[in-house]
Write a protein that binds this DNA or RNA. Structure first.
Length: 715
DNA sequence: ATGGTGAATCGG
DNA sequence: CGATTCACCATC
């Protein structure tokens, strides 16, 4: 008898041992999927190891029910990677594995019963006699064609001996047990290959050779190394595509991560034009399941050299990796919330294991990335910085949002039918509703944050927890009816523009206002064909709008973003405006304006001078003074649970234990977090130099305390 | 995760 | 006082 160690898609650190029957024995291999009994369920697991000996520990060993793959689906180095990542992210390996593979790979046997044919009353009477009524009632549970699960039946049929009744009904052939069909590896779908365009007409004469040499040297040496690639989006793309073309000739295995799907699709198009579709695969969650599966299989079977995808593509089953490219490395979209892993850290880990080269690419990299790369001499600068921009100083006289100058500029564009875009990073109508008599502010009862007023929905919404309330008609405190909105948002700008230019065709644009992709596509089409004069939006606009058409882009009061309690607010605003400038450069007449009340702010100053290095040096000075990243690592721990009381107890206990570790320099919290739905969340921040050691220590404590919180690492 | 277990809490 | 809810625990 053989035994196998199996990993299951559960939030457990443990693996499980199953026995393999003589019959299945010849087909068992490490890395194949197996169907195993687990308590009352059946789960898909992966075979990690095959053991000849029966384990010494005393527990009942159940048999593998079925082997789902002929050949391994996981390579040993991939499994290593998953376990390493589990160690650094404190997410159970099974959960990571679950996130790593197409969902259809994980099929649980769901015991569902379908009604084959509803028997006539006489038939029932014939078999069941006086029990006819009761049996009929049971059969009536099947109203449609849907299968009813075992647990559903259990809930509904709360009388003794119901399982035997079900069995009898099944034996009579009136109902039938139907289980899901497991995914079987299909042969790859044939992709119609368009002729590859090999000319790169857009390539400039710029000499990138020294940079290529640097990267290629590392590639040839087969050593882990990372570079920070700084340059405008178009230069980076030009650079990377020509690097790709060189590497394609030697079949380098390349993984490309992109922050979001919209721009990924554009890039993929150009990539396909360059290399042809045959050796390229794409992985992201918006793809149809079939495509996801087939591309996964193509990658696994080594039919592909280049994989492009969003954050979850770090799990692409490439047999080996030579180069990983991470586009716009500072983008927050690389953080996967649940399971909580950071695709950038994961990519570095994977690269370390495969001795691959990582290219972190960005227009304006995160300050920490710059710092680390600079210290190690790993910066590749493609040169170029945007044109300078204009800063309009305005602090909102006459309660008008747009300054007279900006109004004039918009007016001029409007008259000549040139589109204008306005960016404002605050949604709703007003950020505060205040009673002018007693000064009372509408606050969220749960998290005590000021409620945002949405005029269109006529509602107050908490920006933090999503709490909704009716708008105030009277002040709840003094009954006054003089209630005034303060701090404008997108809706208020829209209103003002409507008032100023009633005939203008205006569209307002925030991530949540586009439910489906269709609406967004229609909007973009309208915009492209010149049917829109003024676009308003949050930063969501940046990666979606066709900026070539825009003749004036104004960022309204970025100090609102800078005031946010996030030490990275500065670099985020900088990167947003910087990238906007880059986009706008495609249009020679394009102009970028910042309207602000704080022109002296260091971020806006750096932008005014078009000086990224100035931003970095100022920011680094602040970080140094406050001991923030990159000088220290921050670790955020979030505990969740139902009872706040219990949570608080755990958090205090956790803090006490963390206090004992010297490497942890500071502990902030615990504090309760406002949450969307009733569940409590509590947060603790840690600060320290030695990230790895601290995480290791945390994991030991968490094991002891039997907790598995979310972990976020910022460095 | 999830379902079973025994303690803790609820209502007439 | 039984019924119901809930933390706790193991899962091979």
């Amino acid at each position: 008898m053989a035994y196998v160690e199996v990993i299951l898609p559960l939030p457990l650190k443990k693996t499980f041992i199953y026995s393999v029957s003589e019959e299945l024995n010849p087909a068992i291999k490490a890395g194949v999927r197996v169907l195993v009994p687990f308590r009352s369920r059946k789960l898909t697991g992966f075979v990690l190891k095959i053991e000849k000996e029966k384990p010494k520990e005393e527990f009942q060993i159940k048999p593998v029910l079925q082997i789902l793959d002929e050949n391994p689906i996981l390579a040993p180095n991939f499994v290593d990677f998953i376990f390493k990542l589990s160690q650094t992210s404190l997410v159970a390996p099974g959960e990571l594995l679950k996130a790593a593979l197409p969902p259809s790979f994980w099929v649980e046997e769901k015991g569902g019963y379908k009604l084959v044919q509803k028997p006539k009353k006489d038939e029932i009477k014939e078999k069941f006699g006086q029990k006819t009524e009761a049996v009929e009632k049971v059969l009536n549970l099947w109203s449609g064609k849907k299968a009813l699960s075992w647990s559903y039946l259990k809930k509904k049929l709360d009388f003794r001996g119901w399982p035997s009744l079900i069995q009898r009904l099944e034996a009579l052939g009136w109902i039938r047990k139907e289980t899901k069909i497991y995914f079987k590896r299909k042969r790859m779908e044939v992709i119609s290959s368009a002729p590859a365009q090999l000319q790169l007409t857009f390539f400039s004469e710029r000499n990138y050779q020294p940079h290529f040499d640097l990267i290629e040297k590392a590639l040839e040496k087969k050593e882990f190394k990372y570079f920070l690639l700084i340059g405008s989006k178009s230069r980076r793309e030009e650079f990377f595509l020509s690097l790709l073309k060189k590497r394609a000739q030697v079949s380098s295995k390349i993984l490309i991560l992109w922050p979001e799907i919209a721009s990924l699709t554009c890039f993929l198009e150009r990539l396909t034009n360059l290399l042809g579709p045959k050796r390229i695969a794409c992985l992201h969650s918006d793809l149809p399941l079939r495509k996801r599966e087939s591309d996964w299989v193509r990658i696994f079977q080594d039919e592909v050299d280049v994989v492009v995808g969003t954050r979850s593509a770090v799990f692409a089953p490439l047999p080996r990796i030579d180069l990983i490219y991470i586009e716009e490395e500072a983008d927050e979209a690389y953080v996967h919330p649940s399971p909580a892993y950071d695709a950038r850290l994961a990519a570095k880990l994977r690269a370390q294991q495969d001795k691959a080269v990582v290219l972190l690419a960005s227009s304006a990299p995160a300050v920490s990335s710059f710092f680390h790369a600079k210290n190690q001499g790993l910066i590749i600068d493609l040169g170029h910085s945007p044109r300078k921009l204009n800063i309009l100083v305005y602090s909102g006289e006459n309660s008008k949002i747009l300054s007279p100058e900006l109004q004039g500029m918009i007016e001029a564009r409007f008259l000549s039918r040139e589109p204008v875009a306005l960016l404002i990073n605050r949604r709703g109508y007003a950020s505060i509703l205040v009673c002018l008599r007693c000064g009372q502010i509408a606050l969220c009862p749960k998290c005590r944050r000021a409620l945002t007023f949405y005029a269109r929905k006529d509602k107050l919404v908490c920006p933090q927890c999503g709490f909704k309330d009716k708008r105030w008609l009277r002040c709840p405190e003094c009954q006054s009816q003089v209630i005034s909105p303060r701090g404008y948002g997108l809706e208020a700008v829209e209103e003002e523009i409507n008032r100023l230019w009633p005939q203008a065709r205006i569209r307002s644009f925030e991530a949540e206002s586009f439910r489906g992709k269709k609406q967004l596509a229609t909007f973009l089409k309208e915009f492209r064909s010149g049917q829109i004069d003024i676009v308003l939006g949050t930063q969501f606009l940046l990666s979606h709008l066709d900026w070539k058409k825009v003749s004036l882009a104004a960022v309204l009061h970025p100090e609102m973003m800078l005031a946010q309690p996030d030490f990275r607010a500065g670099e985020k605003v900088f990167s947003l405006v910087w990238r906007l400038q880059e986009e706008m450069e495609k249009n020679r007449q394009g102009e970028v304006i910042i309207q602000t009340a704080c022109p002296e702010n260091y971020v806006l100053q750096a932008l005014a001078k078009a000086d990224y290095l100035e931003l970095v040096s100022t920011e680094l000075r602040f970080r140094r003074l406050l001991n923030l990243p990159p000088y220290r690592s921050l670790i955020r721990i979030i505990l969740t649970g139902r009872s706040r009381r219990e949570l608080a107890r755990q958090a205090r206990e956790l803090k006490k234990r963390l206090d004992e570790f010297q490497e942890i320099e500071e502990i902030l919290g615990p504090v309760f977090l406002p949450t969307r739905k009733g569940k409590g969340e509590i947060q603790i921040w840690l600060k320290g130099k030695k990230k790895e050691e601290i995480i290791h220590f945390i994991s030991l404590i968490l094991n002891k305390m039997n907790l598995s919180p979310f972990l976020e690492i910022i460095d």
